[in-house]
């Protein structure tokens, strides 16, 4: 990576042999990477916080004697995930797994998925509630900048032509054929997922997170009405986090398929070689 960045710098001094195009502005790049750090930290410390009470409920309240719609548990020999009345054996990954020293642990999420890796609710909350600031204000700053500099209008808003069903269908087919050569701008599926994540999923994470705070509930009681209670908000927080993991997985897969070096270098230096 360092070599690539350096050659990019050299290229900046001498006229580049291949034409480069500006792909990502500085504000986008800074936010992308600070947000990547924040999101991974929040996801992994969030899983540790979940481990303290691995049950999810709907409504205002919910504790051990109330009906959980999702729970991760274990019996004498197996770990399991239960959703509604269905139960899946997840021994080795969820509910019952071996830690780095080969000891059996009976927590919900395994050591390789949590921060910290050994059970510590207090420290996980410290990670979560400090990186939440980076996450929330990073997002706010990016949104403000993206509206201000025209990024939203120019790159993320949909044109009438591209939301025609035939155009969307063409884009779906292009994706299935792994054909990612779509000129300079984003295609309609890309726009839809970025807009969905940036303007819906990430704000949803923040608002459901705030609803779990008893202090915020007193300050902004409408949060409880918006999500149908603190335990519903906790459930939605978890579901939205799962959706975010899915987005990240697809995002990384597509970066790899579309040319990872070009993609990553573009998000670091801001420029990519124009395709010949």
């Amino acid at each position: 990576m360092a070599g690539l960045a350096e050659s990019e710098q050299d290229a900046a001094e001498a006229p580049p042999p291949v034409p480069h195009v500006l792909r990502h502005r500085l504000s986008t790049r800074i936010w992308h990477w600070s947000n990547a750090i924040a999101v991974f930290t929040l996801l992994m410390s969030g899983l540790m916080i979940f481990n303290a009470h691995p049950r999810l409920y709907w409504g205002q309240y919910g504790a051990n004697w109330d009906r959980a719609w999702l729970l991760i548990g274990s019996d004498d020999t197996r770990g399991y995930l239960q959703i509604g009345d269905r139960r899946w054996d997840t021994t080795g990954v969820l509910g019952r797994w071996e830690d780095g020293q080969g000891r059996i642990q009976r927590r919900a999420f395994p050591h390789w998925a949590t921060i910290p890796s050994t059970y510590n609710l207090a420290l996980a909350r410290r990670w979560h509630l400090s990186f939440a600031w980076l996450f929330a204000f990073g997002l706010l700053g990016f949104m403000a900048r993206a509206f201000w500099n025209g990024h939203v209008r120019r790159d993320l808003s949909f044109t009438r032509a591209e939301i025609a069903p035939s155009a969307i269908w063409r884009d779906v087919k292009d994706h299935l054929k792994l054909c990612f050569d779509h000129g300079g701008g984003y295609n309609v599926l890309q726009k839809a997922s970025y807009v969905g994540v940036i303007f819906m999923l990430l704000p949803l994470m923040i608002l459901t997170g705030l609803t779990m705070s008893p202090g915020m509930d007193a300050a902004w009681p409408w949060l409880l009405d918006l999500f149908g209670g603190r335990q519903s908000a906790r459930s939605i927080h978890f579901i939205a986090a799962a959706a975010l993991v899915l987005f990240i997985a697809v995002h990384l897969l597509l970066v790899v398929l579309a040319g990872p070096l070009r993609g990553i270098a573009g998000m670091i230096t801001g420029r990519v070689r124009a395709r010949g």
């Binding site: 504790a63 609710l121 335990q231």
Partner: peptide, 12 residues
């Protein structure tokens, strides 16, 4: 009122 445990559960 609703009692919220640091662990994540709530009881009214």
């Amino acid at each position: 009122t609703r009692h919220d445990c640091v662990e994540g559960w709530s009881a009214i």
